[in-house]
Amino acid sequence: MSTKRILSVKDLSTHYFTSKGVVKALDDTNFDINGGESLGVAGESGCGKSTMALSLLRMVQPPGKIVKGSIKIGGLDVAQLSEKDARRKLRWQKISMVFQGAMDIMTPVYTVGYQMKEPLKYHKDIRGQKADEICMRYLDMVDLDPELFYRYPHELSGGQKQRIVIATALLLEPDLVIFDEPTTALDVVVEARIMNDLKRLKKELNNGMIFITHDLSILAEISDNLAIMYAGWIVEHGSASRIYKNPRHPYTQKLIAAIPRLHKDIDRLEYIPGAPPELTNPPKGCRFHPRCEHAFAKCSQVEPKEYFEDGVMVRCHLYGDD
């Protein structure tokens, strides 16, 4: 199957203009996603992962603003879109998102079916019997009994609700689906089952997926490519298996070494001393240098560019030629 470019992000910067100063939550971000491909985005809390997802959907709330760059998806430039067009053409149809704690977003007073049908009604004007059939087909696709269409949310378990939210996100056949911490509130067994289904759906529907989480081991199971974020920057980006086997950026190295393993005895876990910087006033030069054990003079002076090694982008002076 030929792969087509679904999403292309260039030089994207999103800042929040707060009373304490400009928070540079996302700076100079570049990445692409092809059909049938998934990108895993990992990083500590406050590194800009969620801002990135919201920027793609044009849902950054004031005082936040996309200040620079372009986001191209299926002929639309998201950064230039008016709010009305974003609502009509972009959300649900091109990009949909499964939010963190998605199982709590359902209204308890309507049936599952009523809530699932809403996007069909407003975006495609599909109603009645036909809408019911489409919804049930998607329920079946996420491995649920189509009978659940007639139930109320309180009758369902957390895993079932999560699946319904995923089915709803897929309903309008978007090119790209963003999952923000899709399984954090779930048990391992349920989590593994949902991950299995997402892997299958990715092949079946051939759309793009973005997974946002701080749990690198979940990302390893599902992402083709990885983007490691630190303080508003993507510091390493490339094929997941290359990054796992040979992490280049000192931050990625520490992050991977901090995961406890199930089948290996580890005497001490690695960790990164200190805390992530305030993004109103990020450190000069490389944003990671105050916490980096390989930092040298240049790191505190010059911002590292995007260097490529073996097809993996890494933003670190250790890999520059000059």
């Binding site: 391992v188 067994v189 989590e191 593994a192 089952r193 991950m195 299995n196 892997k199 299958r200 092949k203 749990d215 690198l216 081991s217 979940i218 390893a220 199971e221 599902i222 992402s223 083709d224 997941a240 298996s241 796992y244 086997k245 991977i256 995961i259 393993r261 199930l262 089948h263």
Partner: peptide
């Protein structure tokens, strides 16, 4: 234990049997 995610990027096209 089968269900626990492990950093194992080489089995992307395979799903675990639970």
């Amino acid at each position: 234990l089968t269900a626990v995610p492990e950093p194992e990027p080489d089995r992307l096209d395979r799903v675990k049997e639970i």
